[in-house]
Write a protein that binds this DNA or RNA. Structure first.
Lengths: 141, 141
DNA sequence: GGCATATCGTTAGCATACCTCACGATCTCG
DNA sequence: CGAGATCGTGAGGTATGCTAACGATATGCC
């Protein structure tokens, strides 16, 4: 048990809570929130998904995703289309505008984080890179 | 540029957002939320603090901390006392009950995370440990 | 001493982001 | 062709942040 004062779970929890707060506080002039951006990133990487699949990948309940999708659709960043063979399901796709938006906005939103990362040395960035992969795997991805 | 598809900032952001969601979703039967637990942990480590100092350490604005403290005081986990020489300030201390609570509750709340961590190998835990330290430093501590 | 100003904590009001519960529409299977 | 499962959504509640504004106290300048 390495005695840095607290358990790994405690230190990791505190670190994640605080960084998450900082990230949410980065208000770009844009109207897209961090949660919405996360969902869009998912569509960007995975392609069109149903609301349920998207909720599962993001680790939220379906009703929560409904509202995220509605906001994004209203903004024109995603489109809802009926499933060809299953009338219950829908298919959410990133629109061209949404795709364009991601490329343009992520860098702005992440300016604060990029700045902090650039102040680290290469070894520390490598540690964070590996940690990000491990966390994503732990969080169920 | 390692081609895992996205920049380090993007991957780290997504990982933190998701793990934070998972941690908040761990509902112990207890009434203390993750934010409240974070504040209590701070008092546990730093000793009595004024509301303003606590807000600064947690990286939130004073009004946000006011509510957290009020809830914790109502639950009997912390106490508010007047500052001996400065009538504007107050001093927030962890009560004995609060101290007891932290010891008993953290392990329950972190059961999910502990379980996930135990599934990793030692090298991965070491990576997360270093990452937690780096993140805490980046987030301004 | 006395008033202008700064600081501290709080109140008030707002936005976001989750949740659970309940419901309607649709599919599937006996 | 009805019973039950599945999918998406609506309603309502809670937690967690924010900014703006306010009252109380401290400080400092004349």
């Amino acid at each position: 048990m390495p005695e840095t004062g607290s358990s790994l779970a405690t230190r990791l929890r505190l670190a994640v809570v605080r960084l998450n707060r900082r990230l949410r506080a980065q208000r770009t002039s844009s109207s897209v929130t961090l949660t919405q951006l996360s969902a869009m990133s998912c569509l960007y990487k995975c392609g069109p998904l149903s609301p349920g699949e998207l909720a599962a990948k993001e680790g939220v309940q379906p009703p929560s995703m409904t509202r995220v999708i509605s906001s994004l659709e209203e903004a024109g960043h995603v489109t809802r289309a009926p499933h060809p063979s299953d009338g219950r399901q829908a298919i959410v796709s990133l629109s061209d505008q949404g795709r364009e938006y991601i490329r343009a906005d992520i860098s702005a939103r992440e300016a604060w984080l990029d700045q902090r990362l650039s102040e680290l040395d290469e070894q520390e960035r490598e540690t964070l890179s590996r940690a990000a992969e491990i966390i994503d795997r732990m969080a169920g991805h």
